[in-house]
Design a protein around this nucleic acid. Structure first.
Length: 896
RNA sequence: GCGGACAUGGUGGAAUUGGUAUACACAACAGACUUAAAAUCUGUCGAGCCUAGCUCAUCCGGGUUCAAGUCCCGGUGUCCGCACCA
């Protein structure tokens, strides 16, 4: 028989060409077939695709090919999230235009994706930096502005005083600018915002309906939205301690938001943000306070930095009156952990009931009064140590609240405060607060979608008229100095006011790239339409049936998209419900509600990353794996640099990233092993939602399987019955055994692909290969027919995962059709169940033996058979069974 | 700091969701084929012991249950997100 090796590079090129010429993956609306929109999060064109990236596209591709075989009309597009900072950095460092750099990267990465043999409709490809894409985005922006979903307000940015430029959080390292090293300041800029908070409740409520999303993502989003029921409480400033600078502002109270008004009698201080108006005013005449506020501001705008910094405060000297006891004065502190953006920018601290407040009180020697007595504690002996009592209990030391539980106390105290007045207004008001903030989208950068606005001295903010769209980026910008190139451009921003005709200025800020990725999945449904959304196409394809991407997008990208999709609908860009698919039963049910289709992604899957060891040379530079030679194994492993022979430090296993150089380039990989091996490898072993570690030996295993299957199919083909041999009416035991294994595997592979458990599908195909290997040695009644069936079904099973190899095998089996066009085979139900099964028999929960018995044996029969076992008797040691638990087809447990 | 996850042999992991723990793969070891190597094939492979068998093992400590890798409570460790990275 032909023992030649499968030549992957040659075959793969061939079949890719065949598919392309047959135009197999072009999608079009077809109301007669159920649709499946499979989408992987589109990539940022960073330059090269590495094996890490290829994993989620492979998963999507397997699903797309599988759904196609199941008869679905599949949309599986690809595009580029092409705006963003790396292109601008490249422009500064290498003097290439961001557009040129980006397009070059896109070209290279498209080639790489195509060499993986993905079943993508390339006709629909676009990049978000294409004018034809972002002009529609400008239209969406304007329509949202028209429906009050967009507005301007002042907001803080990280400012590098040396480079005179705005810094992203990732460009701030230990409070200093990444290029200049200068301490970062905060600056207020007027910026554009999307009113995502308008949808806070809806976005939260709708999470319940996303039952095909991972629970953890829904929880994270719910926490991010952070709905909390509480109250605002107003505290009057004590006149004697209030400095004149504060009095001059006419502010005579501090409003705090709290979720725990019940602990009001445990209050020992108020803490306000460094940017609170009172803090600002007080700092004017207090140099020490001003310095402290400045210190708070130098922490930057990142919440993570703020909250993990040491908790610090500064006593302003100002005192406030307790709302329920005007003679009780509390100090007002400025604290670095209070955020101006959240609530009212002021809190009251109850140290006994909140760990952070307690730590703060202990550090600054503020009083600690317990107000909640935990269950099981005694009033007389209860004391707060270094643990706050933040649980349930009974109110104490709280006057009229004593004896109530916290929930009742909450209502009691708020009701009372609502009736009290301060300056003619109620002292307290019930309030629902959200942690979610409006989405600031202004970026002081060149490489993004221009915000289509004109600023006129007379008319103010003027939207660019539709007829003047698109506002295109100038191609002749310069990148030799820091700051926004659009600001530096000599002429671009100069424009006449569309209203009054006088000279005016264009907005030079561009949009956050998250805007680009918030609606690309809609655009894929009609990428060449002359409006942003073709309502009919969108109505047919949406929602995305399976969205696949990294967990790192669990909150921002996905929440922004959920918002943006709603905002599009509410500003006149809704998908047309009438276009929805009538033939699909499931769709029919959705049709009624499709009119208010609000969720863009019906199902979400978050896949893990591909990781790799990192290597560092003696001078601390990262080294790519191809320049590292490994020696020994286990504890004695060592490495040296191939090119220099210098010793190399083996670092931790980390996510493949360009910056650490621990990437395996896809081209190189495909050149060595072929696309199918790459596909098989990234699907193997690790569950798809978990990280997979790249190792050469793991790849070898995948490569061996490719060759092994190729050989096995060849051997089976040689010994099998000719094509179209009629199915025998009877099969011998060998043939039946083989057929059972094949059909069971078929059942499992389908089930596991559908559940995206690719590693399990792969394992069952490995198992099947072992069965096939022994089957080729056997013969018997009907066995040659069973071998042909086995060969054909096996090839069909792995076709979604290794499509090139499958085509090659299919043609070797004598077909001149494409396996890519074959329907998914149906497993024979009768072969899936065994007549006789093996169940375990336990005594007192310990397995002592197993029992072979007819599948449909009754409980009594199973029990009798189990008790008759000699081993069970021995294990019972003469004791009488107290109880015998029989779980049909599972287990018997004898309790003695 | 806050929020979310994860932890099973030397290694990646499986376990029909509470029912025979360690499927499948990798590595290792032994053997077959070969002048030799590669490739391929076969076998062994959680630990311990008084080895026809028994005991102990799913990060650590408790609990629920006839039965726990799976559920509950308390720890430890690792990873991810935290709003201008994409």
């Amino acid at each position: 028989m032909a023992a030649e090796r499968y030549n992957a590079p040659v075959s793969e090129k061939h079949w890719q060409k065949v598919w392309q010429e047959a135009d197999l993956f072009a999608a079009s609306e077809d109301a007669d077939r159920p649709k499946a929109y499979i989408l992987e999060m589109f990539p940022y064109p960073s330059g090269r695709i590495h094996v890490g990236h290829s994993r989620n596209y492979t998963m999507g591709d397997v699903l797309a090919r599988y759904k196609r075989a199941k008869g679905f009309n599949v949309l599986h597009p690809m595009g580029w999230d092409a705006f963003g900072m790396p292109a601008e950095n490249a422009a500064m460092e290498r003097k290439v235009h961001p557009g040129a750099w980006t397009n070059q990267n896109i070209g290279a990465m498209r080639d790489q994706l195509q060499s993986m043999g993905f079943a993508i409709d390339w006709e629909r490809e676009f990049a978000t930096c294409d004018v034809d894409y972002y002009k529609h985005q400008q239209k969406l922006f304007l329509d949202m502005l028209g429906t009050d979903l967009v507005y301007r307000k002042s907001s803080k940015v990280n400012w590098d005083p040396v480079d005179n430029t705005v810094l992203a959080n990732e460009q701030v390292i230990d409070g200093c600018g990444w290029r200049s090293g200068a301490p970062v300041e905060q600056r207020e800029l007027t910026q554009w915002f999307f009113r995502i908070t308008k949808y806070a409740d809806e976005l939260l409520e709708a999470l319940d309906g996303l039952d095909q999303w991972p629970e953890k993502v829904r929880i994270m989003q719910a926490n991010w939205i952070g709905k909390s029921e509480g109250a605002t409480i107003r505290w009057a400033l004590d006149e004697d301690s209030t400095p004149n600078a504060v009095k001059a502002t006419k502010i005579d109270e501090i409003e705090v938001f709290t979720t725990r008004p019940d602990t009001l009698f445990g209050a020992s201080f108020l803490a306000i943000a460094a940017d609170h108006p009172i803090a600002r005013a007080a700092a004017e005449k207090n140099a020490d306070l001003a310095e402290f506020c400045e210190e708070c501001r130098s922490l930057g705008t990142s919440v993570a930095d703020l909250e993990s910094a040491e908790k610090k405060g500064f006593d302003t000297g100002i005192r406030v009156h307790h709302p329920l006891d005007p003679t009780w004065l509390l100090p007002v502190w400025v604290a670095n952990f209070v955020l101006m953006d959240y609530g009212t920018g002021a809190i009251f601290g109850c140290p006994s009931g909140d760990q952070r407040d307690l730590d703060f009180a202990r550090a600054y020697d503020l009083p600690v009064t317990p107000v909640i007595l935990p269950k099981g504690e005694d009033t007389a002996t209860f004391e707060i140590g270094d643990q706050a009592a933040d649980g349930d209990g009974t109110m104490i030391n709280s006057q009229f609240l004593n004896g109530l539980d916290p929930k009742a106390a909450f209502n009691e105290v708020v009701s009372r405060l609502e009736k009290m007045e301060l300056g003619g207004q109620p002292v307290a008001t019930r309030k629902t607060n959200f942690r979610l903030r409006d989405w600031g989208v202004s970026r002081q950068r060149y490489w993004g979608c221009p915000i289509p606005i004109i600023h006129c001295d007379d008319c103010g903010v003027v939207p660019v008229p539709d007829a003047d769209l698109p506002v295109e980026l100038p191609s002749d910008a310069t990148f030799d100095k820091p700051g926004n190139p659009l600001d530096h451009h000599p002429t671009w921003s100069k424009v006449d006011c569309p209203k009054c005709g006088k000279p005016a200025r264009r907005e030079t800020d561009t949009m956050d790239t998250f805007v680009d990725s918030s609606w690309y999945y809609v655009r894929f449904t009609a990428p060449h339409a002359d409006k942003p959304v073709d309502a009919k196409a969108a109505g047919y394809w949406l929602p995305v049936d399976q969205y696949i991407g990294g967990v790192e997008h669990a909150i921002l990208h996905l929440l922004y998209s959920r918002f943006f999709f709603r905002a599009m609908s509410d500003s006149g860009h809704a998908p047309n419900s009438g276009a929805s698919n009538a033939k699909d039963g499931r769709k029919k049910k959705q049709k009624a509600s499709a009119e208010k289709l609000r969720e863009p992604f019906a199902a979400l899957f978050t896949q893990g990353m591909v990781t790799h060891e990192t290597y560092k040379s003696s001078d601390g530079a990262w080294l790519p794996p191809e320049d590292v030679t490994l020696e020994g194994d286990g504890k004695s492993r060592s490495a040296k640099q191939t090119s220099t022979g210098e010793p190399v430090t083996i670092g931790p296993i980390e996510k493949m990233s360009k910056s650490k150089k621990n990437v395996i380039d896809l081209d190189e990989f495909i050149g060595n092993y072929g696309a199918d091996t790459a596909r098989w490898f990234v699907l193997s072993d690790s569950p798809p939602e978990r990280d997979v570690i790249y190792t050469d030996v793991g790849v070898e295993g995948a490569r061996r399987y490719v060759q092994r299957i190729w050989r096995l199919i060849g051997e089976l083909e040689q010994k099998a019955a000719p094509r179209d041999t009629p199915k025998p009416t009877e099969f011998g035991p060998e043939a039946t055994e083989l057929r059972r294994a094949v059909h069971k595997t078929l059942h499992n592979v389908g089930r596991n692909i559908e559940g995206l458990r690719f590693n399990v599908a792969v394992a069952s195909l490995y198992e099947l290969a072992n069965v096939l290997a022994s089957a080729v040695q056997k013969s018997g009644n009907g066995h040659d027919w069973a071998m042909r069936e086995a060969a054909e079904l096996t090839v069909q099973m792995f076709a979604p995962m290794m499509p090139h190899l499958a085509e090659e095998c299919w043609s070797r089996l004598g077909y001149n059709t494409l396996i890519t066009n074959q329907p998914w085979p149906q497993a024979e139900a009768a072969l899936l169940v065994d007549d006789e099964i093996t169940i375990a028999v336990q005594v007192n929960g310990k397995r002592r033996d197993e029992l072979k018995i007819a599948r449909d044996a009754s409980k009594e029969e199973v029990e009798a058979a189990a008790l008759a076992l000699e081993t069970i008797h021995r294990a019972m040691e003469g004791r009488q069974p107290k109880k015998v638990i029989v779980v049909p087809q599972r287990i018997v447990n004898v309790v003695v």
